[in-house]
């Protein structure tokens, strides 16, 4: 997975044209690599904007319908800009048993948004995610890839304060297996 500094800039609407051309050329040579190309695109932009998907389709010779079929089938892909802080509350079994629904509701109340939504100012995006594989640290949330383990599920406010203090940056391989 490639990292890119463009990730820090949530204003970016579309990757520079030649970037998509290069990306398409790279993956076009390998059979069945649409998903890999989309991973790389999302890794750069944080999501897959429609314009970029169209451009990628033209360059790779894949109909837009096929691209959207894949984008909407797999949970990992995002169609909208996720915001500055992507808060992913793990809803896997281990976290669930340790009260992650309560933590999720607490954050919903703190931010005044529902799971799957972003705050109007674009600062926060809240999502429930499938198992992040750190079950030993349950219950946990990850923000832009930084894991906050062993959380007090009754203290959503405290978690958000920690996030503001840490200002975690976006990571290309952020786990965002949104439900």
């Amino acid at each position: 997975m490639s990292e890119d500094t463009a990730l820090d800039d949530v204003e970016v609407e579309e990757a520079p044209e030649d970037e998509i051309v290069v990306l398409a050329q790279k993956w076009k040579k390998k059979r069945g690599s649409l998903i890999m190309a989309l991973h790389e695109l999302q890794g750069r932009l944080g999501y897959v904007p429609r314009e970029s998907a169209m451009k990628l389709g033209r360059e790779m010779g894949i109909p837009l319908a096929n691209i959207y079929e894949v984008l909407t089938f797999y949970n990992y892909f995002k169609l909208e800009s996720p915001g500055k802080y992507i808060i992913s509350v793990c809803t896997g079994t281990a976290c669930h048993i340790k009260g992650s629904p309560k933590l999720l509701h607490g954050i919903e109340n703190e931010l005044g948004i529902k799971e799957g939504e972003s705050t109007p100012d674009g600062e926060y995006h809240l999502q429930g995610v499938r198992c992040l594989g750190c079950c030993g640290l349950a219950p946990l949330a990850s923000v832009n890839g930084k894991v906050y383990g062993k959380q007090d599920v009754t203290d959503a406010h405290g978690l958000l304060e920690n996030v503001k203090r840490d200002e975690p940056m976006h990571v290309a391989a952020e786990s965002n297996d949104a439900e």
Partner: peptide, 10 residues
């Protein structure tokens, strides 16, 4: 070898 990534589908 070749490496392919999943995309969040159980």
């Amino acid at each position: 070898f070749d490496v392919r990534l999943g995309a969040g589908a159980f």
